[in-house]
Structure formats: structure tokens, C-alpha cells
Design a protein around this nucleic acid. Structure first.
Lengths: 111, 111
DNA sequence: TCACGTATTTCTACAGTGTAGAAATACGGA
DNA sequence: TCCGTATTTCTACACTGTAGAAATACGTGA
């Protein structure tokens, strides 16, 4: 795709879940958010690789949890959306809604 | 992706363009519709391969133009959306809007 | 009738996305 | 020290996104 600035369908979903979870979002909570809102079940691997790709493009950033956190298991990696990610979300939305324009009321399509 | 019933981002755009053009849509008009509405330029090859894939999934169907059509060039192939395509569009819309829920008014994201 | 221009589809190729599942990591507690 | 638990990381592969070149086919003017 030659590094276009368009989001893939699942990338958009992951980005939105990240925003919905907000402060302190990490892999597991992002997955839960997607499953709860969309009713669609996704593997944790799918979430992480998408998050990684989004990070490579500068749409999200991540940091490891403070090491003093008292809990078991591997350290969490917290994610947050970056400005570029917000812009990409904005563009996706604009494009899709301009494509929908005028069709919303058609009972045969989309609703 | 193991044949999930989810549409890719570009598949959704092509499907919507098809509906917008309506009766007598074919490759070139679908492309024009996408370019006009989204402001995004796409190659004709991209449109056709997406249309082909959608057809294989049963989301659209096509038929060759009547041979008596008086015009030059290769015969047109007209496309139309199928019920399954309308349903897929519907599902995409539902999922994305449930992911957006509550964020529409946030000035930092998406608008 | 034949070379041409034009309209359109088809083919090919490859980078990027979607996705699952298994493996690795790391820590607190018995 | 071993174990269970929480979480990330790795790996692999099918599918999607995309461009561009090639093929096809017909009407027309010479």
C-alpha cells in the first residue's frame, strides 16, 4: 500500500478502543473494549500486532508500566493515541461519511 | 483473515460507491464516484480487483453489457450490490458507530 | 479493409493488514 | 524453589490494497 495515510478497518477499531479506554489502556483492556462494544471476538495477538503497527506509523505511543507496581505477571505496556492517530481517525470518518451521504435513509442498504 | 465477514476499508468504500452510482455502474464510474466523494485518487486496477474479490464473496454481481450497445472499446461490465453486500455494509456501520459512541463530541479526536 | 484511437477490462505483482496461537517473560506467593 | 497468573512477544500465513502494464474490442477514416 506504499505507506498511505489510510487506516485499515481493524486499525481504526483498535484506535477507537484505545481512546474509549483512555488513561492506562493496555493490550488486554483494549481487547476487552473491542469485544464489549462490537460484540466481535478478537485474539490478543491481533490486538498487539495492530498496536505495534500503529506505533511504527506514529499513530500511538507506548510506555512500560512503572516497575514498582505490585502485581504478578509481565510488566504492562500502556498505550496512548498520538495527534497523528487522531487525525487519521478524523480522515477515515470524513471519507466514510462522504461515501454514505444520502444513503442513510435507504431501507435496503446499511440499515 | 480466514474469510471473516468483515469488510476491509477499501472494500467498504467501493461498495458504497457502487450503491451511489446505482443502475448501470461499472468500473470507470465507480472509480469516478470514489474520487469525487472522497477526494482520494485511486487506480482503476485497485477498483477492479476489489470488485472481483467482492464478487467472489457474493457481495456484488456483474453482467456484461448488451452487445448491441453502440460504442467503441471493450464491453462494459456492470456491477450491482447483492443483499449480502448490503448486510455487510450494515454490519460495518454498526461496529464502527458503536466504537465511536460518546466520542463524537470530543474536540481532540476525530473532529 | 486496415491501421488507429478510444474505452474498458484483465493480469500480475508485491507490500501491507488481519488474525490466531504458541511461546516467552516476570513476578508474588505457597 | 516451584507454580500459577498476567501479560507481552513472536511467528506465520491468508487476505486486502494498490499500481501499472497489457490485452481486448469496437467504430471510423483513409
Amino acid at each position: 500500500m506504499t505507506r498511505s495515510s489510510y487506516l485499515g478497518a481493524f486499525e481504526e477499531i483498535v484506535l477507537l478502543a484505545l481512546v474509549q479506554v483512555g488513561e492506562g489502556a493496555y493490550g488486554m483492556t483494549v481487547r476487552r473494549e473491542i469485544e464489549e462494544r462490537s460484540g466481535r471476538s478478537v485474539s490478543i495477538g491481533a490486538v498487539y500486532s495492530t498496536l505495534d503497527r500503529l506505533e511504527r506509523k506514529g499513530y500511538v505511543s507506548s510506555r512500560l508500566a512503572d516497575p514498582d507496581a505490585v502485581r504478578r505477571g509481565r510488566a504492562r505496556r500502556y498505550f496512548q493515541i498520538e495527534q497523528a492517530g487522531e487525525e487519521a481517525l478524523h480522515r477515515s470518518r470524513e471519507v466514510v461519511s462522504s461515501m454514505w451521504e444520502g444513503l442513510e435513509t435507504r431501507p435496503d442498504v446499511g440499515r
